[in-house]
Amino acid sequence: MKESSTNSIDPRAADGLPPGQAERRRFLTWLSVGLGGVCAALVGIPVVGFVLAPLLRKPAGQWRTVGKAADFAIGKTVNVVFEDPSPLPWAGVTARAAAWVRRESDERFIAFSVHCTHLGCPVRWMHDANLFLCPCHGGVYYQDGTVAAGPPPRPLFRYDVRVMNGEVQVKADAIPITTAL
């Protein structure tokens, strides 16, 4: 037996909706929710893209002159300062970067990253001890960058280095990140 509209539990009947009104409400609900999703996507996708853009931008390394080759003594490790590969106009002093450059022979130079491979702290060269020491967690490296003691999981990273027209150039690149688990 068909229920009367007064005691039915059917909300459409209880509301006294004319035929088709429930479908209309369902459609309007989905329309509103859908439009909300479209609005969120229209604004959200560009925002997410803008915020995540640095993940996709991989600037190429840039050669930076760090001094005359004649100024680097064989067997010595010295600190050199240069501009990072992609400085923004408002970067100020944060656009600076550093490396430890060691002259092995007349022709051979090595440029070590200053970042400890443990957690990135700046290693210091102890010239009389021929060691790099890290101030944070006690990482120690030999003069060739290999791990001597402490928690670093791998040797110091190296930058490309070359001599052009009597000048030593280091290829300024990304801060090396130890990604191996």
């Binding site: 640095p54 400085p87 944060t94």
Partner: peptide
């Protein structure tokens, strides 16, 4: 950034996100 870098697969991306690029700088 180095700590984030240890996360498998997405560590490098997270490090770039934290640095705002590949180095400390304007961003």
């Amino acid at each position: 950034a180095e700590q984030a870098g240890r996360i498998p697969y997405i560590g490098g991306w997270l490090a770039s996100f934290i640095l705002g690029g590949t180095t400390i700088g304007g961003a």
